[in-house]
């Protein structure tokens, strides 16, 4: 098993977090994982992307240049990374803000109304969790349960109140694919 994922969007959309959640979940499930961000001088509002590799074997390159799956959260990322998906791979598009369709016909494209769904669930910052749920369900790379556990481990103390709304977003995303 070798899953190479690329996640891209604006800084502030929680793009790096999506990648980290996939990596942490894979790690919790006993797989080899790497997470590598592209990094630049932009702190907010610039483009951000990260690579995640999950495998049963030792991982070579950590930067994903040919992806089994790509998650794009904004239009420039769709244009930049659409061709990174290998034939037969999967592309997850945040259709709340990306109104274009993919031009690829050799891959499976999932249009996830992530922002809309998150707001519907009262968690306007949860679009990344919605698309993460869709990704997990469609690719079966990591289980939804692993993601739920992660959410519970991440939000503790004062932040425990965010657990339910984030799990709800992941669950809703999974139901959208």
């Amino acid at each position: 098993m070798l899953e190479q994922v690329l996640v891209a969007g604006f800084g502030g959309q929680g793009v790096l977090r999506i990648g980290q959640m996939i990596a942490y979940a894979g790690f919790a499930e006993g797989k080899e994982v790497t997470w590598a961000p592209s990094y630049g001088p932009e702190m907010r509002g610039g483009t951000a992307n990260c690579s995640v590799v999950i495998s049963d074997e030792e991982i070579g390159a950590a930067q994903v240049l040919e992806a089994n799956s790509v998650i794009v959260m904004n239009l420039p990322s769709l244009h930049k990374f659409e061709d990174t998906v290998i034939p037969g791979g999967k592309l997850f598009i945040n259709s709340s803000i990306i109104k274009e369709k993919s031009k690829r016909d050799d891959i499976t494209v999932y249009y996830v109304d992530a922002q809309e769904k998150a707001e519907e669930l009262g968690n306007s910052r949860g679009a990344n969790m919605v698309i993460l749920g869709a990704y997990a369900k469609a690719t079966q790379t990591v289980t939804l349960e692993s993601l739920y556990d992660l959410v519970k481990q991440t939000f503790t103390g004062d932040k425990a109140k965010f657990v339910d709304s984030n799990i709800a977003c992941i669950k809703a995303g999974a139901e959208m694919v």
């Binding site: 980290q20 790497t34 590598a36």
Partner: peptide, 8 residues
């Protein structure tokens, strides 16, 4: 890259 990337 190795400074920035995460691994177990």
């Amino acid at each position: 890259l190795i400074g920035q990337m995460m691994e177990p």
